[in-house]
Nucleic acid binder design. Structure first.
Length: 459
RNA sequence: GGCGUCGUACCCAAGCGGUCUAAGGGAUCGGUUUGCAAAACCGCUAUUCGUCGGUUCGAAUCCGACCGACGCCUCCA
């Protein structure tokens, strides 16, 4: 199946055709660095990673940008009300974001530009919009004039100005008009930049518009973000670029649905967030990653401990399967995809259908386990398994190869295990069982197989 | 108020016009196996897809109404 994505602009799945065959250009809206990201934020970031990996799997080279929003009301608030400097605050949370991304096996982006490092470009961009007559100045605030851009409303149906419920205290001409530049206020303190129309700072929609065009160009392939950014953020972002450059900014707009907690979306402002760092105290990064990949990116997902437990069991099952093999010794001459492999790839190419792909992988595991059970594994099937395991992991990235290495079992565990083996040989079941319990309490499970004891670290 | 999305077994979750008496995971209960376990395997658990109508030779899948849940329109992944 050819790669296809659900495009939020048309509300339909569309076959993917990149602008250039050399390199696919992808922009994803990144974090605002004023707090530790929560698991809901990472649902979107893992979706970016999935997109990236599937593009690569399809043979594309990807250039992807995930920006760091470090100019923002909440950041200014914290800097002016707490004993912390602008750079200290923003770089601290930027670092946490990058560390946790790495933890969750998110491949690094090509660039993670900071908004604050492109302010002069933003000023230039805004000036061009004013020259073009699609932006106007009210007391040092610059607004985009939505009435001067006929295509406004690509993501929503708009018939009149009733769309916006916001109070128009700044004197915008039309209620859908939005800020490109916000004039300096006393509460901004020292956080300000100088422009032709006075001190102030760029507004959010302009930040992304400029970072996208600066780093990727005037036309990009895919723009993605959380569903809450669809309107107004992406509407406003694309309006600016398209009004100025008179071309289509992004060909495909993809949006990830929300993570729900207590039947509301998880968000900082609702105060119902779960930080990744807290969750990592209880669950492995692989578990979190699989949890986020085990439902489709466009469907709402409720958070629950039960689901994380289920994910953790899935990982156990996968690892047990992988542990049947000594992958390094399986010889794979030429990689030929079987029908299972192809079904897996088709599922991913069909708008990143990870749940279906997972199902196909588990089907395969069941099939192979049967073969293992009745000792009918052939070299060809082993090779097929190895190819599938690698293929699966190149997308899901939840199999930790170190778990299958013998050397990683601590000495004291190995000693207890061999003692238990001794007791078993003497048929001293009581003592053997006592040792098994002891080993379990130390975090290792024992499975007695034909080839002797097998030790597995508990997740 | 305007604009959207969703409702599949005990739980989670694919399927989006025929191969669906509905994939896959978790859970339960039987069985094979095991010193006992664990794991693995086999079997059972939705003739049914929120409800009611309609279109069609044929609908979980399309259309309409209703019920229920959620999102956006304000910062938000």
């Amino acid at each position: 199946m050819k790669l296809q994505f659900y495009n939020s602009v048309t509300s339909e799945k569309e076959e993917f055709h990149p602008i250039s065959n050399k390199e696919v250009l992808v922009y994803g809206c990144g974090p605002t660095v004023y707090h530790s990201p929560h698991i809901g934020n990472f649902r979107t970031f893992i979706f970016y990673d999935l997109l990236n990996r599937v593009l690569v799997q399809n043979g594309y080279t990807v250039k992807n940008v995930i920006n760091i929003t470090d100019i923002d009301d909440k950041i200014i608030d914290r800097v002016n009300n707490e004993d912390i400097g602008f750079n200290d605050l923003t770089q601290k949370y930027e670092r946490i974001f990058l560390e946790q991304s790495d933890f969750l096996s998110i491949l690094p982006s090509t660039v993670n530009p900071r908004a604050s490092e492109y302010v002069s470009e933003m000023i230039h961009f805004i000036k061009s919009l004013m020259d073009k007559g699609v932006a106007y100045n009210i007391n040092g605030n610059i607004f985009f004039d939505t009435k001067e851009y006929s295509k406004y409303g690509k993501f929503v149906n708009i018939d009149d100005d009733s769309l916006s419920r916001e109070d128009n205290e700044l004197g915008k001409k039309h209620s859908n008009d939005f800020a490109l530049w916000k004039a300096w206020k006393e509460s901004d303190g020292e956080i300000t930049w100088t422009s032709d129309w006075g001190n102030g700072r760029p507004a959010w929609h302009t930040e992304c518009a400029v970072l996208g065009t600066q780093l990727l160009g005037e036309s990009i392939d895919i723009h993605c973000g959380g569903i809450d950014l669809k309107f107004p953020h992406h509407e406003n972002e694309s309006a600016q670029v398209e009004a100025l450059l008179e071309n289509q900014f992004a060909n495909y707009w993809l949006h990830a649905e929300h993570l729900i907690f207590d039947s509301e979306k998880m968000s900082k402002s609702l105060g119902n967030t779960l930080s990744v760092s807290d969750l990592l105290k209880k669950y492995s990064p692989e578990t979190l990653r699989l949890f986020l990949l085990s439902s489709h990116y466009r469907s709402k997902v409720s958070f629950s401990d039960k689901k994380l437990d289920d994910s953790s069991k899935m990982i156990d099952k996968i690892n047990r399967f992988v542990n049947n093999f000594d992958l390094a010794t399986i010889d794979v001459q030429d990689i030929k995809y079987s029908s299972s492999h192809l079904a897996f790839l088709d599922a991913l190419n069909d708008d990143l259908n990870t749940p279906e792909a997972l199902g196909i992988f588990f089907d395969f595991i069941n099939k192979m386990n049967k073969n293992i059970n009745n000792e009918s594994m052939t070299e060809a099937l082993k090779a097929e398994s190895k190819i599938f395991i690698n293929l699966f992991n190149s997308i899901f990235s939840i199999i930790n190869p170190s778990l299958s290495k013998k050397g990683s079992i601590p000495k004291n565990i190995q000693d207890l295990a061999s003692l238990r083996e001794e007791m078993r040989n003497k048929s001293d079941w009581n003592e053997a069982d006592k040792l098994r319990r002891k080993i379990e309490n130390l975090g290792w499970l024992i499975e007695d197989t034909k080839d002797g004891q097998k030790l597995i670290q508990k997740k």
